[in-house]
Design a protein around this nucleic acid. Structure first.
Lengths: 149, 149
DNA sequence: GTACACCTTCCAGTCACCTGGAAGGTCAAG
DNA sequence: CTTGACCTTCCAGGTGACTGGAAGGTGTAC
């Protein structure tokens, strides 16, 4: 996680970054990136002669997209399908358009739900920010949940 | 899943509904509802003399909230914390407010991400809805993903 | 009174998504 | 030339969220 020294920095600026650097940039475990490659989410990157993976800006973009897409609740399978479309962007069957449309509708529904939950949470916050403390059990419960998140 | 007959309907309208009915109403597997109770998400409902669970409107509301919250990506643990706050709504420690604030910020970020992904998907849809079909591999891939979703 | 749909508990299995550890290779710095 | 941070592969384990099946009880309808 801690990238101490930037060795061969100039050279790698053109040739790409290694997995640890990329992981740091996008906030992922290197293991996760390898895993994404393994399941076909990410196309296999270049390698150095000694076998190290070398990533370019495209990979970083894709990982950032994956992060966003995961955040909104797409499964890795769905994300994989979308990325595949991006890669060879010339496979526009009607079936596909239907799928995208369905996903768009789902996203809109999600947007509504998000707004509602946000509102309820904000209301809760209002209540919570006044008055005296109760038994304290709740805080303990929250702390417990926090430890796992 | 199929609730054929409504036996004792009038009686249960006041006393609560059984798990199958509730499950049907909120679109869940009865197993899932029991599971939620088991992990402490849902408080144990009343029981009939013979041991059947009887749910009231509150339970239904909570389940609907859970559905929404899950849709926006909250974990069951987080939802549990929020529901706990709801139940004994008199435990407003500062720590708790901080947590809610953090969650609100996360929701806002998610809202932005959602909008962005929506936009990218829409752009993709534009591209996809014109032109001739490519190799067809993509459609097959999508169909494969669909089967699992 | 028996069929039938429902309910109960318990326990095990599944699926998606990682994550940790072992065993070993690479490479710039001291 | 060794140290130490990085990298490699492989394989196993873990978490979250269910889900299925067995074995048996309940309760209304015919």
């Amino acid at each position: 996680m801690t990238q101490q020294l930037p060795p061969r920095a100039v050279k790698r600026e053109r040739a790409g970054v290694r997995i640890g650097t990329l992981a740091g940039e996008v906030g992922l475990n290197p293991k996760t990136i390898r895993y994404y490659e393994e399941i076909g989410l990410l196309s296999p990157p270049q390698r150095t002669r000694s076998g190290y993976r070398l990533y370019d800006a495209t990979a970083r973009d894709q990982l950032r997209f994956i992060a966003k897409a995961k955040l909104v609740g797409l499964s890795l399978a769905e994300i994989g399908a979308i990325l595949a479309l991006w890669r060879d962007n010339a496979s526009p069957c009607a079936h596909l358009v239907a799928i995208i449309d369905r996903k768009l509708a789902a996203l809109d529904q999600q947007l509504r739900a998000l707004g509602e939950v946000r509102q309820e949470l904000a209301a809760l916050r209002e209540e919570a920010s006044g008055g005296p403390n109760g038994a304290g059990t709740f805080c303990r419960a929250i702390e417990h949940h926090e430890r796992r998140a």
